[in-house]
Design a binder for these strands. Structure first.
Lengths: 253, 253
DNA sequence: AAGAACCGTATTGTATGCGATTATTGAAGA
DNA sequence: TCTTCAATAATCGCATACAATACGGTTCTT
């Protein structure tokens, strides 16, 4: 299918040379990785979609080699499924995997809360407050902005721990949650209650580690029940088609 | 309410070539990845060692392409450091990174303990008991066997949760701990006190989640202090030379 | 002799090509 | 009409080839 090849990633001004004095000669493989990652998280590439090496490489202006490299990393992070000899797809987590992710995420973020309790600098505290105010603003219009901000709140917290590994894991879990919500989430429910964020900040500032951890725990727990309880789509076409078949008097095997 | 721990997909059989007619044609890239991973964890490849693509490829009988792919994955997991245009080295975590890893590991394994409390099947319980007995045997001879078994105990626990992501993270943290102990650990201290493993099993079987979590927490905490408190080597030459400088009346900048 | 500029070599970054595996289409047989 | 099966097309797995960059030693300059 011939389509006009318009490079999706036109963000590499000078690929030869030193990237215009910006310091690091970043390998393009990483650029491909980031591009795909964003596309998946923002649901431009929907869960389950096929990812042919050729097409993507062409679109991004690189060879299959780099695309494959990116696939490998995305697969490790659970954003892409890699089947031998059958190529790559955007991951399509099962409900069970979804629960696993949320459970791990709860554990990680509880750690974040404990780590941060009583150790927030005034600047950090203020930053969080400001963020929550943004969330409230966005919440009124109830756009996709609201969802993004909710997620960023948690990332910000993880950053503030100064623990790079913890941050990476939280980010990873968070990315996978995007996927999961794309599949099983309710259409426009903003996942996080802003008030819960407020309470959390309060507990952190008070240095009450136990309470902060409990709040975080409860918070994420309620995210699950709010967003995840109503499975919307099914993985298998059969599941999608079953009701249609029945209404037409056909009997799925 | 205790639901039975769910079984995890059985791990794949041999991976060389065609897996001896048994089904899946495992990509060789994965074989390379596993080989390097083991070599690093078992300290055949010591922290900081240079990893030239072609030398390794030659040794393993594959092209640089596959070696690079493996490097990418190992880098994500923190076992390899990848510097643009300057190749790969076995990771050499700083003391700070080490602390980060241990902190995250504590959080993860606490989650394991909570998850497992009161949900061990008799078979699982027996398996853990048997493992601990092995540990005791090995402890007497105090070989490297003892260390390996200690690590495996924790992996086994993670497996039993049936949470694939949790298992992956625990494995990852565990691998990195191997690296860390290779650098900063005391020569032959077996990291885990066997008695602590025993207590932990007891608490799990009793279904006392809080106690199990606390035990795990304390257990890992003591691993850190036992093994990590005496830094043996330093990353930076400056750290190595500092004491010499001082003893000679020189003042390092 | 110390430092800077130069050049050859070793190694990495990326693209391309070839054989192998899988998907697809269409025709023949039931 | 529904299968079965084979031929073809599409895609992947991997090796190789070429270009770009960094390292080490040598020579030239001061």
């Amino acid at each position: 299918m011939p389509r006009p090849a318009r490079p999706l990633a036109a963000n590499k001004p000078s690929l030869n040379g030193k990237a215009a004095e910006t310091g690091a000669p970043v390998p393009r493989a990483q650029a491909v990785y980031k591009a795909l990652r964003r596309a998946i998280i923002e649901q431009a590439l929907k869960p389950g979609v096929k990812l042919p090496e050729d097409a993507i490489g062409e679109q991004l202006g690189v060879s299959r080699t780099l695309v494959r490299e990116a696939f490998g990393r995305l697969a490790v992070e659970g954003l892409v499924e890699l089947k031998p000899n059958r190529g790559a797809n955007v991951a399509y987590p099962t409900l069970e995997e979804a629960r696993d992710v949320f459970e791990v995420r709860r554990g990680l973020e509880r750690l974040v809360a404990e780590n941060l309790a009583g150790r927030l600098t005034p600047a950090q505290s203020a930053e969080l407050e400001a963020h929550v105010r943004l969330e409230e603003k966005a919440h009124e219009q109830d756009g996709p902005e609201s969802i993004r901000l909710s997620g960023e709140f948690h990332i910000k917290l993880a950053e503030m721990t100064g623990n790079a590994l913890l941050l990476r894991y939280v980010q990873e879990a968070s990315s996978r949650c995007s996927l999961i919500l794309a599949i099983y989430g309710r259409p426009h429910s903003s996942e996080c209650a802003v008030s819960e964020h407020r309470q959390l900040i309060e507990a952190l500032r008070a240095g009450d580690a136990a309470r902060a951890a409990a709040l975080m725990d409860h918070h994420l727990q309620s995210v699950v029940t709010r967003a995840l309880l109503a499975p919307r789509g099914e993985r298998d076409i059969r599941d999608v088609l079953a009701p249609y078949a029945l209404s037409e008097g056909l009997t799925p095997s």
